[in-house]
Design a protein around this nucleic acid. Structure first.
Lengths: 231, 231
DNA sequence: GCTCCTGACATTGCATGCAATGTGGAAGGT
DNA sequence: ACCTTCCACATTGCATGCAATGTCAGGAGC
């Protein structure tokens, strides 16, 4: 009855369910699905040319991950973000990301540090081109996301990484560096470099507090330009 | 295509999927399912007299929540806990629970505080009966869990509560106050009372630091009596 | 005796049909 | 005009059958 396994393969295969899962998540991120919009099983099944079963399973997973909310016998819809949600996310990031940086600074290796440094430098260079070509903001936002992500992974705490992933990714939908003027953008980039300096200097406390300042600066800007009331 | 809804009922109904979900979770908690044991869809469906569909959906949800791990085309099995998992959970609790207490102390109302006080007092009374009747340890453990849970909910941060729920509940499986001698048990109970005193005194910092000490004491005991190597 | 191949078995992945449930609107009464 | 009742429709919830895939034992070849 209780069978053990020899080797858990855990290889990455693309089943219909995972495909549907990724499609829905992408559509939420790029705004194809609006907040509070219902996602109907039959519609999506027809469109993606699969049966309702993998669609149902993907929807269940997305509900568990916090992307959708399910109302029994009525359907699953995209969650809408309120100011309370924004406050909760900031409170959590303000505690979890400094923690991640502190742990990372104790466990960092040279290779990872070099990669992070390259990203930070690239972002600084791009920042000086923002006024000439506003489209580089997207590239900066993408690099910024990757920078934070890699820093968190370097903490060596897988649960922490998973939590922050779900917390952060949902908060950056359609909200990148659009509000940052050049002064704030430059400061943000300097923070990245200073975090790495603190790690190189072997000072977890320095790294932790710069990260906290980095987030508080972002928070101040956020509440200066609040989101439109979605729900 | 994009339909809005008037009132999201969100009422609690007991579908077959939720029933299976709860049964599996309970069986993991009480040890009926061993770590690394595979849960077969067909077996459970026969036993609970439902079809494989709700079983499959429940398994998917439990995988997303971290109770099970899925190997494609091979099945879902109970996660096994290593010392690395224990370290990760302690690191997270050590940051999240003090945060929760700090927030709770800023938003606490009288009714909740009274209820917490009653639980803390009850636990202290039970502690003095442990030597005469060891079975009260279970009741203390249960009250302790409820105490922490209510304190966390009082933080007013729903995401924080959800995260801590998933982090803490998985770590207390078959590991309650069995290792605590009377001295440590008494100290633990005094910590509870002191947390409430700090909240009443209007000192979030005091509350936060006592909670941290409370967890570090528990951590010291844990690594004094490590778990058997499960996996 | 050891290795590699092959085929049967067990298990999950997916499709489809029917049942259960919630919603909205039409019809009838007041 | 307004409220209530009831029925048809839309949608999800569940059951079942078949397809795809992974595992493992047994046998052929060396």
């Amino acid at each position: 009855m209780a069978d053990e396994v020899s080797t858990p393969p855990s290889q990455v295969v693309q089943t219909a369910t995972t495909k549907v899962h990724d499609v829905i998540k992408q559509r939420i991120l790029d705004g194809h699905y609006q907040p509070h919009e219902y996602i109907r099983e039959a519609n999506l099944a027809r469109e993606l040319e699969v049966s309702r079963t993998p669609v149902r399973e993907a929807l269940r997973e997305l509900v568990s991950e916090g992307w959708l909310e399910a109302i029994p016998h009525h359907g699953s819809r995209v969650v809408a973000w309120t100011e309370k949600d924004a406050r909760e996310v900031f409170e959590l990031r303000l505690v979890l990301e400094p923690m991640a940086v502190r742990l990372a600074s104790e466990r960092m290796n040279e290779e990872c540090l070099a990669h992070l440094g390259a990203m930070a430098t690239r972002m600084e260079q791009l920042t000086e081109r923002v006024e000439a070509d506003p489209s580089v903001r997207n590239e900066i936002a993408s690099l910024n996301h990757e920078f934070h992500r890699e820093l968190i992974l370097a903490s060596g705490n897988q649960r922490l990484a998973t939590m922050l992933e779900s917390v952060v990714r949902t908060s950056v939908i359609r909200r990148n560096f659009g509000n940052y003027d050049l002064t704030n953008l430059r400061r943000s980039m300097r923070h990245h470099q200073e975090i790495l300096e603190a790690i190189r200097a072997g000072s977890p406390a320095w790294a932790e507090h710069i990260m906290r300042a980095h987030l508080l600066a972002a928070q101040a800007l956020h509440f200066r330009f609040p989101v439109a009331p979605d729900g």
